[in-house]
Simulated assay, not measured.
Amino acid sequence: MSIFSTEVFKGKHALVTGATGGIGYETAKGLSAMGTDVTITGRKEDVLNDLKDEILKDVSDAKINIVVADLADASDREKLVQSAENSFGPVSLLVNSAGMTGGGVLEDLTQEELERVMHLNFTVPILLTQRLYDSMKKNKEGAIVNVSSLSGLRGTVGGTAYVGSKFALNGFTQSFALEAIEHNIRVNAVCPGFVDTKMGRDGIKSKGERHGRSFEEQLKIENESLPSGRISTPEDVANTILFLLTDAAENIVGEAVIISGGSLMR
């Protein structure tokens, strides 16, 4: 059930990266339902087209711009920004949702894998945000949400690359928030625990394998370990992102909002 008005973001332009993943997918749907013109990007054109079709079923006059891009590539990032601005004008709402898992225990971690994870999860959001920052400053408005992780707040076995990248993303969020708020631009992060997405399910499967358990057994353990009794859904995370983008969150600055079913209390 939505608590958001269909007029909240009327006339604004949002850019959602990682829109082919569960969290980005649901966030893009929510933004469109709130009146936003949305540019969506990811590497899977078929999923982006499915997302556009799904949005248009619910919001027949929605304005959706699809850009297939690999954000790890500088030329693709520039193509994305140019297409977004040419389609709907300056971006005032940015959701950095693109990311990846990867790595392993330290003795198995290669430099190539470490750099690949750090580049997409940490460097790319910075460079894309930097590219859009000037227009936000000129217009004296903006809101940015970085999709981090509970793993950006505590370590995990085999998490050197992924956990390190999310700790770094939270550091960027806090540092940039101090700079951007002077220009009426708010920057925050969300830090989900396990989410019912492909990435989340893969993480649960890997954790189960380390302990000799099936995916189903490990999922049951994860659900039962939480005060809420379940891992988060993509909609749980998307709704928090949407709230942070609205003026209702105008005094929330540089925060890392945890969405984990109460896991930190156990």
Score class of each variant (00 low, 15 high):
4 F>C: 01
7 E>C: 08
10 K>C: 12
12 K>T: 15
13 H>S: 10
15 L>R: 08
16 V>Q: 11
18 G>M: 01
18 G>N: 05
20 T>R: 00
22 G>W: 10
23 I>N: 11
27 T>N: 04
29 K>A: 11
32 S>F: 03
34 M>V: 06
36 T>K: 00
38 V>N: 06
39 T>E: 14
39 T>P: 10
40 I>M: 06
44 K>Y: 10
46 D>Q: 15
47 V>I: 15
49 N>H: 09
52 K>P: 06
54 E>V: 04
55 I>T: 08
57 K>F: 04
59 V>F: 07
59 V>A: 10
61 D>N: 15
63 K>S: 13
66 I>F: 13
68 V>W: 03
70 D>I: 05
73 D>Q: 11
73 D>R: 06
77 R>E: 14
79 K>F: 02
80 L>G: 03
81 V>S: 00
82 Q>E: 15
82 Q>K: 15
88 F>M: 07
90 P>R: 01
90 P>G: 03
91 V>F: 09
97 S>T: 12
98 A>I: 02
101 T>I: 01
103 G>M: 10
104 G>N: 04
108 D>E: 14
115 E>V: 03
118 M>V: 12
119 H>L: 13
122 F>Q: 05
123 T>I: 14
124 V>T: 15
126 I>K: 03
126 I>W: 15
127 L>S: 04
128 L>A: 08
129 T>I: 05
130 Q>S: 03
135 S>P: 00
140 K>M: 08
140 K>D: 10
140 K>C: 02
142 G>M: 07
145 V>H: 01
145 V>Y: 00
149 S>L: 05
156 T>I: 13
157 V>R: 06
160 T>W: 01
160 T>C: 08
160 T>N: 06
165 S>T: 09
167 F>I: 10
167 F>P: 09
167 F>D: 12
171 G>L: 10
172 F>P: 01
174 Q>R: 12
174 Q>C: 00
174 Q>V: 13
175 S>A: 15
178 L>W: 02
179 E>Q: 12
180 A>I: 12
186 R>E: 11
187 V>M: 02
189 A>T: 08
189 A>W: 05
190 V>K: 09
192 P>G: 07
195 V>Q: 04
203 G>F: 00
204 I>K: 10
204 I>A: 11
209 E>Q: 14
209 E>F: 00
210 R>M: 12
214 S>M: 12
217 E>L: 10
219 L>D: 01
219 L>S: 04
224 E>L: 09
224 E>S: 15
224 E>N: 14
226 L>E: 10
229 G>L: 06
230 R>M: 09
230 R>G: 07
232 S>D: 13
233 T>C: 08
234 P>R: 07
237 V>L: 07
238 A>N: 09
243 F>Y: 15
244 L>I: 01
245 L>K: 06
246 T>D: 12
249 A>H: 04
252 I>A: 12
254 G>S: 10
259 I>M: 11
262 G>M: 01
264 L>Q: 14
266 R>S: 10
